[in-house]
Structures are given as C-alpha cells and as structure tokens.
Amino acid sequence: MTTVAVLIDHRDGEVTRPALEALTLARSLGTPVAVWLGSVPSADAVALVGDYGATEVRVVDAEMRLAGHAAAALGAALEDADVVVVISTFVTKEIVTRLAMATGAGVVVDAAGAEIVDGRVETVQTVFAATWNVRTRIHTERAIVGIRPNTTQAVPADTPGDAVIVPVTVDRPATRERVVAVEPVERGAGVPLAEAPVVVSGGRGTGGDYALVTELAELLGGAVGASRDATDEGWISHEHMVGQTGTTVTPALYVAAGISGAVHHRGGMQASGTIVCINLDPDAPIFEISDFGVVGSLFDVIPQAIARIREHRAG
C-alpha cells in the first residue's frame, strides 16, 4: 500500500483549498497522511483534513521560513511515506529540494496531476507558457510531487475518516541563515492570487486605475492580478504580478483587461481554464490565446459586463 504524505498548506490556522486539492490527489495515489508544520491545528482543521481522507495529522512544531528547518521537520514526519505531495510555491520548492537531497527522492514541481503507472509516479505538466504538455516519470522509489493550485478538483472522501493528531518531535538542525525581519504582506479579504478560482488582471490599458478590475474581480469572487508593466509603473504591488517571475495562476476563469499578452505574462496564466480578454489593439497577442476577446476599451466593456451579470443574477 502506498503511503502518501501531504504537506498541509494552512493560513491563519485554516486549511487552504489547495491543501484539500492535494489530499484529493493523494487519495488517488494511495493512503493519505497529513503533515502539519506549525502549532497544533484546531479540531475543525483536523476534522476537515479527515473529511478529505487523512487518518493521521502529524504535527511538527516547526516553521517554514528556512528551507533547511522545514525540510528536516517534513523529513521527520514522513519517514514511512512513499510519495510526498505539496502545493508548489517558491517556498515549498526549496523545502522539497532539500528533502530530496537528504532522501534521494525524485522530484517534479509545478505538476498539474500525478498517477501511479507500473509502480512509479508519473506527473503531467505544461511548459513553455503552456504550449507543450510533458509527462515525467519519477524512477526512484520515493517520489515528491509539487502540484499547482486549481489543477485537481477538491472532493471529500466517500467515507470521511476520523483524523487523529500524532505529534512528531524533531531536533531543529543548525542552519547558518537567519531570518532577521518578517513583514507580513497586507492581504485583501479575497483569496490569494495563486489559489483564486477567478483572476481579473489589469495591465497598461488601465492607466493605473484598478477600480473596474477590482469591482469585476469582487463580483466574480476572484482575485486581482496585474501585468509586469503595471507593477513596474508602481500602479499595484508586486504580489499581484501574474507571470513567469511573479505568480503563476491556473484559475477556471482568467480575465485580461488592457494586457497585451507578452510571453512573460502568458507563461504565468496560459494554462487557465477559460481565458477572456479586453484590449484596444486587435493585434495584441492575448487574443490568440483567449476563448473570448473583445476589441474595445475596458472602461466601456467592464461596466457593461458588470451590469449585465448583475441583471442576470437578479433575474
């Protein structure tokens, strides 16, 4: 039987939706065991993890800020695991790299899915700005998979189990690095960009005015994104940047407003479910990858779309 350890992504003590996606994927690979780094989770959090199929929540009182510490904690908690599943972020990629160096496991990050084929894990992912699909086989007995948010539909287990907390102690390894300052990023009420089911992004065409983009994002229950142009102009903070060097998103719906669609941007959003765009320039490359495009001004199109959606919902 394959034991699949899932590093539970949590924020302010709450289990995130990507964590439930990871548990759902883990169930398709074997028997999930949850690993929680941080202070002891609430009963609600443990119950939720149980609903998604984990029977154990292994809790290690460690924090994630230094990859060396987090990898040691994770390693201690999953000694018996054949497969490790994490949500792929810049932070977890470093943690699993350390873990792989320590254990000899093979790693694929930024995967869109995984399955077991002839006793080994194979992953699928998109590369080159989602223009190619790649299948990778992990040869090693132990496999680590980093999956992108929104690539697996989170579904509770048929028979929700009672998850129990199993404390794990680990000697904090000596690390030479020191985190000397941490300044939390102010976050709006909505879900973070990487996890959002809908992303509405504004670029140069906004001229720096994000009111309409924000209004549409809120209406659709999504997060606000931006192009590199817009963050470079200082119109909106770097955390909003969608692109190869910012946040990569794969929402069910991506709305690009006033964004031309340079390759750097496309690399961060082209694997989205449905893509729509609004742009004054009919030759903008964003139209080539959009399911529905409007050649026009976002200042005309967005208010009308908002009104139509409100009317539909009221109707």
Partner: peptide
C-alpha cells in the same frame, strides 16, 4: 475562439459568454 469588436454591446456579449 471568438473575437468581437465592441460597437456598443461588447460588455454584454462578454457577460453573456461567461
């Protein structure tokens, strides 16, 4: 793929698509 040019109802068409 569909591309339309806004001639006054582009926003409505976009909303209807969604």
């Amino acid at each position: 793929r569909v591309t339309v040019t806004d001639t006054g109802d582009g926003g409505t068409q976009l909303a209807d698509f969604l």
